[in-house]
Nucleic acid binder design. Structure first.
Ligand SMILES: [Mn+2]
Ligand SMILES: [Mn+2]
Ligand SMILES: [Zn+2]
Ligand SMILES: [Zn+2]
Lengths: 147, 147
DNA sequence: TGAACAAATCAGAATAATTCTTATATAATA
DNA sequence: TATTATATAAGAATTATTCTGATTTGTTCA
């Protein structure tokens, strides 16, 4: 169990390094620190939130590096940007297909998985005209805390 | 046919006036002008876009009024804010349940209707904890022009 | 191991979208 | 028509994000 817990941290970081090498992208301490904060983070954090977390172990990091790095990660397919309503950008390290509940009041976003949503049939009219690469369901309402 | 075309403009505006009266919200020329631009607009326009259109007939309107009014309309349930990725806010006057295709490159948003998406079953775990008021499907990819 | 060089970072300035402030104007009401 | 609460315009302020330019660092390969 303990071994497993340790591996959990080791494994994704090694995969991260590999992906960087593949793409010819430098493995910098900043990038490792940012990626480490993202691993397993289910809160869909903003750049600011990530910045504050990273600063604990990396006090001199600049907010610009956070933004640039998240953009790089997004281009590499290491994180997704999350749908929102014109508030701040938020990022999602969960790459497996999944769906979101969003609280209209506090903007909390909660993941959920639902197999029956993973193969929804988009209407022909759309499919014929555009190339659809991913489909997701967004449920909205009020969360437990806001109710 | 001509009569119908004329009525198309008249009807929603009268409904608009009624809704304002119900809510005790003043019917100002600015609000009418902004609402008129929204009627039947399927492009999910931004505040800036709406501003430019309204200015044609209302040159002295201020951008702040556009934002304030759209926020008022949103609170009244006259428009929805559209999901996006941290770009500018966009608004949707279509209130019937529908779904979106979004181009990842040019951010074009296209409505589609699909009955089978209108009663998706959200997992118990979510439904039990939160109150879900609406569910939508977002398909993403590249539009015809960007392909 | 240690140049060489492209890439990445930092700090702070710049930009852009949105909101706020305040003085003035106006819609609703009686 | 006078009263009053609400809405507006203009421009300042704020905030998130991006850009710029000087400096540092990771990677490569001799
Ligand atoms: Mn997620
Ligand atoms: Mn729409
Ligand atoms: Zn909430
Ligand atoms: Zn496009």
């Amino acid at each position: 169990m303990q071994t497993k817990a340790l591996n959990k941290q080791k494994e994704p970081l090694e995969l991260f390094r590999e992906k960087c090498r593949e793409r010819g992208i430098s493995i910098t301490p900043q990038r490792v620190a940012i990626y480490s904060v993202l691993i397993g983070n289910q809160a869909h954090p903003s750049a600011e939130t990530i910045y504050n977390r990273v600063k604990i172990t990396f006090p001199d990091i600049s907010i610009d590096t956070i933004y640039r790095t998240l953009s790089t990660f997004s281009n590499m397919g290491l994180v997704d940007e999350v749908e929102g309503y014109g508030e701040v950008k938020r990022y999602d390290p969960e790459l497996k297909q999944h769906h979101h509940f969003r609280c209209k009041k506090c903007n909390k976003i909660v993941d959920f998985h639902e197999k029956s949503f993973d193969n929804l049939k988009i209407p022909k009219a759309i499919k014929e005209k555009f190339s659809v690469s991913n489909i997701k369901v967004v449920a909205e309402g009020l969360c437990d805390e806001c109710l």
